Simulated scan of single mutants.
Amino acid sequence: MSLEGRVAIVTGASKGIGLEIVKLLLHKGVKVAGWSRTDNDVTDPNYLFISVDVSDPESVAHAYNQTTEMLGEDVDILVNNAGVGHYGMMDEMPFEQWKQMFDVNVHGIYFVSNAVIPKMKELDRGHIINIGSIAGKNPVKGMVGYSGTKHAVTGISHSMFMELRDFGIKVTCIYPGSVNTNFFDDIESVTANENMMRPQDVASSVVHCLETHPNYLPVDFEVRPLRPKPTK
């Protein structure tokens, strides 16, 4: 299905997977609102950057109003990509880091999705893509907080797809394995490397799901690097 002329919101659009999603959607002729704390280097007449904190409902409401004023009210694509991760054992992690992960990774999906769903129901169409993680299916030692949030994203996504399918709204959860981004900058035990997936390939999976036939609903989409460790 052609994406030309559609209107999308992409959260966490400043770098990594989110930035590549923005670029690919613009290439497909989509009008894109990039929501993130910081701007990126995208210059395109169909691109609108909005500074937003997805964990703050007032910030989200303001960003949604700006988006509809500038790009039109028919927002029918949402990519919930904003996320944060901290490494730490359960009894060692500061509460501030624990809370931040739940505020952004879980509550952010709640606030942003609630902003767009009413109009999507009115349009009788839409596609919400939640960027989960392999950590949302398989627990990871030392990532108890992050794994907890991504398990929540899995459950939320599954319930959302069941609630919204009768309104013509698709909900897809994508589960990437390790991706070569700055996500690992603050995690001492892991260093980003070329054996990880490229963020642009994860972005291509997002667009693939968006381009599916109107009556075809991809629910779970798991992607992993072929050789996650260097071969000898």
Rank of each mutant, 00 (worst) to 15 (best):
E96A: 11
G136R: 07
W35E: 05
V106W: 02
N46T: 11
K31R: 15
I169C: 01
G18H: 00
L19F: 05
G5A: 09
K99V: 08
N40A: 06
Y175F: 15
V202I: 15
S133R: 01
G148T: 12
G83K: 04
P139T: 14
K119I: 15
H127T: 10
D186H: 13
T172M: 06
V106D: 02
S147L: 10
V207K: 07
D76L: 02
I9K: 06
V22D: 02
V179Q: 04
G16E: 05
H86M: 04
P118E: 07
W35T: 13
R224L: 13
S204Q: 11
G88K: 00
W98K: 03
F184T: 06
V179T: 11
S205F: 00
V60K: 00
N130Y: 02
F183W: 01
S14T: 12
P230V: 14
G88T: 12
L210W: 06
G177I: 11
G34K: 07
D91W: 07
A13V: 12
V116E: 03
H158N: 13
I134P: 02
V190N: 11
V42Y: 04
S205P: 03
T67G: 02
P94I: 06
G18D: 03
P214L: 07
N81D: 11
G168A: 09
H208S: 10
D39I: 09
K170P: 03
R37E: 13
Q97L: 07
R6Y: 03
T38N: 14
N105S: 04
R6T: 15
V30Y: 10
K15P: 06
Y146R: 05
G88E: 05
T172H: 05
N138E: 13
R227E: 12
I156N: 01
K150I: 07
I131L: 14
Q100K: 14
L25F: 07
H213M: 03
Q100A: 08
M162H: 07
I131Q: 08
E58H: 13
K15H: 10
